[in-house]
Computed example of a mutant assay.
Amino acid sequence: MPRTFDNLDAFSDAVGEDLGTGEWFTITQKQINTFAEATGDHQWIHVDPERAANGPFGGTIAHGYLTLALVPVLLESAFEVKNLAMGVNYGTNKVRFPAPVPVDSRIRASATLREVTKTPVGSQIVVSTVVEREGGDKPVCVADIVYVWSGAPEPGQSDGEAG
């Protein structure tokens, strides 16, 4: 069950707190191949199981950026903020991939709320995220993810007005 916040203000009060850990998610070869198609990154360590079996990782591995792209999905089961009008990915302050993600690995993410800063369109949120692999001894991704979220409009306001 994800940790739930009733609104952006309640979430903002959690700066410095652990937001939770999401559920396990399995990385499949099909997902890796689809990501390779979408990005044009067809390096053999990702998409050639036969060659990769004799490579440095003993099989194919997920792209680091696939792991990063999955962070929002991985965090859905960790925490939830209700009554948001919108949220967008703004960027990252730091990303590292300390360990590979072999095909068929299970990964999950945990998060800590680092910062909330008011902006003209809502709030800029910084969430420190650690993605771990089941049975791994090091994280597979460590990232400070930056979002911009805005709360739901107050009753009687249009969707374009800030509350």
Rank of each mutant, 00 (worst) to 15 (best):
Y147D: 07
L113D: 05
F97M: 06
P49K: 05
P98F: 12
F11L: 11
S150H: 04
V126P: 04
V130F: 11
G59H: 08
E132V: 15
T67D: 01
L66V: 05
E76D: 11
Q31C: 01
S150Y: 00
G64Y: 11
S105P: 02
G16K: 13
K138T: 08
A52E: 04
I125F: 11
G163W: 07
F5Y: 15
S12K: 07
G136D: 11
P72H: 07
G58P: 04
V146L: 12
L8T: 07
Y65L: 13
H42C: 00
S77G: 04
D6M: 07
G64N: 11
D6A: 15
S110N: 10
V101C: 02
A99I: 03
A52G: 08
N33K: 02
E134D: 15
G151L: 00
P72G: 08
S12A: 15
S123L: 04
G55C: 09
N93S: 13
K118N: 02
Q124K: 15
P98M: 09
G64C: 08
Q124N: 13
V15W: 03
D6C: 06
F97Q: 05
T28A: 05
T112A: 06
F79G: 03
A152Y: 01
Q157R: 12
P102R: 06
G122T: 03
R133C: 10
G135S: 12
R96T: 14
P98K: 12
G20N: 08
R108G: 07
H46I: 07
M1P: 04
M1F: 06
D13F: 03
G87N: 03
C141K: 02
E134V: 11
T4E: 15
P100L: 09
G55K: 06
A143E: 07
T39F: 10
Q43R: 06
D41N: 13
G136Q: 11
S123Y: 10
I32R: 03
Q31I: 06
D104M: 11
L70N: 00
V73E: 13
